[in-house]
Design a protein around this nucleic acid. Structure first.
Lengths: 225, 225
DNA sequence: ACAGGAGTAGAACGAACGCTCTACCCAGAA
DNA sequence: TTCTGGGTAGAGCGTTCGTTCTACTCCTGT
């Protein structure tokens, strides 16, 4: 009912590899029309997993939200819910990495970069009425030790984020091993602070934690100097 | 089938308020026989929520695991799944608080107390094959902003844990406001580190994070001295 | 003109969901 | 004895779950 598609018309762009399935994925840059079906499905899944977790999100809800049909979902993701979730995790991975890079790159001073990173997270979280925390935590926790495809995507995301932070710490002159260890702690702490902020419906946990992280990092940076 | 109960016999102990429902709760200290039905249900729910989250856990699975019948579950928790989950969260709250107190009280030196706390968490996590992380995180994330009864229990748990840490920091001579703020960060960080350890199936994130927390705390403690 | 593949559409499957309901058991009060 | 009511027992309600399946509409290549 309602024939929702059919009006975008840009039938080219065959240069798409990257994801396993045979996606057309319409790299449609003109007039910023509705993205291709596959892309819409992934985005909707990512947002729903972020807000309701893996078990709390149904395929039918996804297809409704993405304005795609069930047939399309299984066409693009024959591996079903698990494959779809794994792909959505990869989407959220990159999304969060962008945020992280933006925050950490905002100042040459390491401490300031850290606090403005938490400020950025806090602002986004508030803007979503405390709904959109880390895009993968909930799914990660629900599936740990039980859905290998998803676990793998989650582990990759964490490694990716740690790498982003590590780079910033190395640039600040922190030694390699310290930088790697600290990067892990930074990610873990941000994760925990975001959860706390959601529960408390307040920016405070994120901001306070940012302050403490800044102090910790500068302590290590000063050791070097 | 199997008539699982019927052999404990201690039909008194009416002095039970605390929880809303009309619990008998059999304060059964002799022979440590199987706990009362209500207690078994709460414990099973707590463990299942910890491992599979809220949406991933069914009432029937709970009643099976608790060796109770569906009738018993709804007898003790007429509020259904939500009430049951809230009670299970309170159970996990106290469970985790005990762990926290044990770790933090294990040494007069603040830094050592902190690291032995993460060591304790790491050991327990490994012992459960990386399954039993924080008993409430998963449920908290899935229900945030959508199930007020549970949100409330979660918020109480967090406040409870923060209070435990705050006490320890005050005892170490840290000023009141710093202590309160740091306690929040400590809890957040432990939360994040436990998640990371589960995902990585390794004690390392917890231990490294413990080291960093110890350094942060002693830095604040030394400021005072 | 027409074959064929990509993608859309949604009915239908068996299983599981949360929850309601009635029936029953049995210890203590009368 | 009979009565009462807390607790046990599980069939069954309507709904939704993830998935499968067939039918259909386009577009493109020949």
């Amino acid at each position: 009912m309602k024939t929702p598609e059919r009006a975008d018309a840009s039938p080219n762009a065959k240069t798409n590899a990257k994801t396993g399935t045979n996606a057309h994925a319409r790299t449609n840059a003109k007039a910023e029309a509705k993205p291709g079906t596959r892309e819409r499905i992934v985005r909707a899944t990512s947002r729903l997993l972020q807000r309701q977790g893996y078990e709390g999100t149904g395929i039918k809800q996804i297809s409704r939200e993405a304005e795609a049909t069930l047939g399309s979902v299984y066409h693009f993701f024959p591996g079903g819910k698990q494959e779809l979730a794994a792909e959505a995790i990869r989407h959220g991975d990159e999304e969060f990495a962008v945020l992280l890079r933006a925050g950490l790159g905002s100042s040459p001073d390491l401490g300031e970069a850290m606090t403005s990173c938490t400020r950025l997270l806090a602002t986004e979280l508030r803007a979503s009425d405390w709904q959109d925390g880390c895009p993968i935590t909930s799914t990660a926790l629900e599936t740990v030790g039980r859905v290998p495809v998803i676990e793998e995507a989650v582990a990759e995301a964490f490694a990716n984020w740690r790498a982003v932070v590590t780079d910033r710490l190395l640039a600040a002159g922190i030694g390699e091993e310290d930088a790697r260890e600290l990067a892990g702690t930074v990610i873990n702490t941000l994760e925990g602070a975001e959860l706390a902020a959601q529960v408390a419906r307040s920016e405070e946990p994120l901001l306070v934690t940012g302050k403490h992280l800044a102090r910790l990092l500068t302590a290590y940076a000063d050791d070097r100097a």
